[in-house]
């Protein structure tokens, strides 16, 4: 366990999210009813995904500048974790939508945008899997990661705000006003976001560390057998 304090913080925040998210007072709103608590779990998936993809693109740019294979592994590791967050976000969103909007897939601009984003990142891994040469793979996927991130921003942040959407905060309004009228949800929501992001970084870091160690062992064996 390398510098464990932030991992412990992640665990504590997630425990608090579950306890506070289920037990603390929430606004009483029609249609949403008790399902408003899904906000504490569904929305942090998207925050997690965006942060993971942001870290992925930062390390992709670092790879293009320094050509250190470690940067490539870090970039891919964060993209992988971000994709998991995205899939969980779509899954939880579909369950929630089924009970509040009537159908799991409403064709909502934010739903479509996030679906396209996950497909773009699926293609990132197809690209990685199709190239054998490590340097070529790292370079091409770093460039692709930049374009993927650049495509994600209009898809989930801009287009849903220009058109009408079932999601709150769409159609020109900023984020969370509808829920935050009495600010009762903030004390759980922000810790939840932080906790999930830290857990995502933890999962990604384990993946990256295992791959790095494997590469080291493989390199050594290659040198020895030459």
């Amino acid at each position: 366990m390398k510098s464990a304090w932030w991992k412990i913080l992640a665990v504590l925040l997630l425990i608090y999210t579950v306890v506070g998210g289920l037990l603390m007072e929430v606004p009483r709103l029609v249609i949403l009813n008790e399902s408003i608590r899904a906000l504490y779990f569904h929305v942090p998936m998207w925050f997690g995904m965006v942060v993971m993809f942001l870290l992925s693109v930062i390390y992709a740019i670092r790879y293009l500048r320094h050509h250190d294979p470690l940067n490539d592994r870090i970039s891919a590791g964060f993209a992988h974790t971000g994709l998991i967050f995205g899939l969980l976000g779509i899954g939880t969103g579909m369950i929630w939508a089924n009970y509040t909007w009537g159908t799991p897939w409403h064709g909502d601009p934010k739903q479509n945008g996030s679906a396209i984003t996950t497909l773009i990142y699926f293609a990132y891994f197809v690209l990685r899997g199709s190239l054998d040469n490590q340097e070529q793979r790292a370079r091409l996927s770093a460039v692709y990661a930049i374009f993927a991130f650049a495509a994600m921003i209009p898809l989930i942040f801009i287009i849903p705000r220009l058109t009408s959407s079932m999601h709150p905060g769409s159609g020109g309004n900023p984020g969370f006003n509808m829920y935050d009228l009495d600010s009762t949800m903030r004390p759980v929501f922000y810790p939840a976001v932080t906790g999930w992001i830290l857990l995502g970084v933890w999962i990604a870091s384990v993946r990256i560390r295992i791959q790095t160690a494997e590469e080291k062992i493989l390199d050594h064996e290659y040198e020895r057998n030459r």
Binding site: M1, R209, A213, K216, H220
Partner: peptide, 27 residues
């Protein structure tokens, strides 16, 4: 469930630390 999954992640984390030590010894 959360505790179980986090404990599982913790064991994988320790496994990664062991693998890193092994890789360092190798090199």
């Amino acid at each position: 469930i959360l505790g179980g999954l986090i404990f599982y992640l913790y064991t994988i984390d320790r496994k990664a630390t062991r693998l890193e030590k092994k890789a360092d010894e190798f090199s």
